[in-house]
């Protein structure tokens, strides 16, 4: 029996088996949740309401506005800020990172700045953002921008910097000039890593946005969560958290799809699920 169990975990599961495992773990989690929060289950619904109450809260959020906006509007508000901040960071960070990876002079000048910026948690910028920009959308965009630009620059730089020098030599002997090497060889070869940097950056942007909405917002998923905790509407709080999680996971999946589309040759595609 023991050996059979072990061999089950050793062989990678097929698609259907994999789906079954996913569903299974979710069902087990929900079951445990329901069991512990049933009347007499040991956990007060004040701390953790049972699953059906959370579902009710979700339905309620869908059917009527909460804090002046519908759920869709709250989600849209969050998405708008995260996309604006993340794309603006990419507009600056992607070319800057590539330049820093390719020209060592650019690296010498700009790298120390990001070395210092990197350890500062993006949330530490919120007070400054509020002082500078007030409790508005621009403050949140600014904080998201800060959170997104650091991984975007650092990963892009690393992606370009770690290109095999032999490829550059090969391109040189085939007659390519510097511009052709940078665009046709370096950036194309680095593409999967560049997209991976964008993905990490988006993940950072998302978690930071939600945190920023806890402090400086009048709409958005983080704002819902904060208010629900003040009014002890734990069901709504959990719904907001679940949406944050699902959207974050969705971003990650989308960015993996992007890699597959822009770099169909990438080995990484063959490995990941």
């Amino acid at each position: 029996m023991a050996t059979r169990v072990r061999s089950f975990w050793r062989t990678p599961p097929g698609k259907i088996a994999w789906l079954a495992i996913c569903l299974g773990s979710i069902v087990v989690l929900l079951g445990a949740w329901w069991y512990l929060t049933r009347p007499g289950g040991g956990i007060s619904p004040l701390f953790l309401p049972p699953p059906d109450e959370v579902l009710d809260a979700f339905v309620r959020l869908l059917s009527r506005p909460y804090l002046g906006s519908t759920l869709g509007q709250h989600i849209a508000a969050s998405l708008e800020v995260v996309m604006t901040g993340w794309l603006a960071a990419g507009l600056v960070g992607l070319p800057l990172g590539i330049a820093m990876g390719w020209w060592r002079k650019a690296r010498w000048v700009a790298f120390p700045i990001f070395q210092v910026l990197r350890p500062v948690p993006p949330l530490a910028w919120i007070p400054l953002a509020i002082v500078w920009l007030g409790i508005g959308e621009s403050a949140r965009v600014f904080v998201v921008f800060i959170a997104a630009i650091v991984p975007w620059v650092m990963n892009s730089m690393q992606a370009v910097y770690s290109i095999d020098a032999l490829l550059v030599s090969a391109a040189l002997t085939l007659g390519a000039n510097d511009r052709q090497i940078l665009t046709r060889v370096v950036c194309r070869t680095a593409l999967p890593t560049l997209v991976a940097g964008a993905r990490i950056s988006l993940g950072n942007a998302w978690t930071t946005l939600v945190a920023a909405e806890l402090l400086a917002a009048t709409s958005g998923l983080g704002y819902i969560a904060l208010n629900a905790s003040r009014t002890l509407e734990i069901g709504i709080l959990l719904v907001a958290m679940a949406i944050i999680g699902v959207l974050g996971a969705l971003f990650s999946v989308i960015m993996q799809l992007v890699t597959r589309i822009v770099a169909p040759w990438s080995r990484a595609n063959a490995e990941g699920a």
Partner: peptide, 8 residues
Amino acid sequence: RFALFPSE
């Protein structure tokens, strides 16, 4: 080491 362009 061949040095082929992996993206092409």
